[in-house]
Design a protein around this nucleic acid. Structure first.
Length: 241
DNA sequence: CTCCCGTGTACAGTTACGTCA
DNA sequence: CTTGACGTAACTGTACACGGG
């Protein structure tokens, strides 16, 4: 990879920019049902108000008798199945109320990874389908994809940081080389009292960097030296700092 | 048409559990 | 056996889009 490619500005612009959000249109009309079920999560039970065993972000205002969507209802039912199931019963917490962490099986992880490769976001239908297939809750699928996207983004940022660091090192090296080259040219010009030879690259002859060169009066046709002296100059007149 | 509300989902950040050196 | 680091499932808070009243 050459330096130009490495320093492509699109790289820098990409940093910190999140993925484009694609809102999914609602798949179906949502029914309403009366939630009379008992909370299952010990933590929630303690709070004595909400039903979010696995939480719904917007449940906060809901009462015990709040309306719920069909999606939630389906998940409640699936949870009921899960509670009678064995290895995926993550919501049966420890007796002391501590969180029990699910360990996904190899098959589940592989399947989730494959789905992620195809599409990093899932619509409601895909989510439920995958949940059914893997014997997990739709919420767990959702969480897994959220975490997976976060991991992907983090890894991408790390890679871009490494690339930028490398690019920075390359530029510093180039900067040192150019400074050295400029110094040599200055020495040559002063020593032989004549214009730089071989000719300076355009980016040095016409550089505007204060550190390097300053434009001065065109008519003088001289280069003003740092010590106050001057030399003849056939190129654009400059003042050496 | 506009406003408000409920709902669903995304993301960033955090917490906490399980594993391993 | 203990401990700290690490990976990651799960959670919290917030923002936004969308549809319906």
């Amino acid at each position: 990879m050459n330096e130009e490619v490495m320093c492509d500005t699109t790289l820098a612009l990409g940093i910190g920019v999140g993925m484009q959000r694609e809102r999914q249109s609602k798949q179906h009309k949502r029914g309403v049902w009366l939630n009379l079920s008992l909370p299952l999560h010990p933590k929630i039970e303690a709070s004595d108000d909400h039903d979010h065993d696995y939480h719904n972000d917007n449940d906060d205002q809901d009462s015990n008798f709040s309306s719920k969507t069909i999606d939630d209802h389906e998940e409640q039912e699936e949870r009921g199945i899960k509670r009678s199931a064995s290895n995926t019963d993550v919501y049966n917490n420890n007796s002391d109320g501590s969180r029990k962490k699910l360990k996904l099986t190899t098959e589940q992880t592989t399947s989730l990874e494959n789905s992620f490769k195809i599409n990093s976001t899932l619509n409601t239908g895909q989510k439920h389908e995958l949940a059914k297939k893997l014997n997990l809750l739709p919420r767990q699928i959702e969480v897994w994809f959220q975490n997976r996207r976060a991991r992907t983004k983090l890894k991408q940022i790390e890679q871009e940081c490494a690339l930028l660091k490398k690019c920075c090192e390359t530029l510093n090296e180039e900067n040192r080389r150019l400074k050295k080259e400029l110094q040599e040219v200055r020495c040559y010009s002063i020593k032989f009292d004549q214009p730089p030879y071989p000719p300076l690259p355009f980016y040095i002859r016409y550089a505007t960097t204060a550190e390097m060169l300053h434009p001065c009066d065109q008519d003088t046709k001289t280069v003003i030296l740092p010590n106050g002296g001057s030399i003849a100059q056939s190129h654009a007149p400059v003042k050496l700092s």
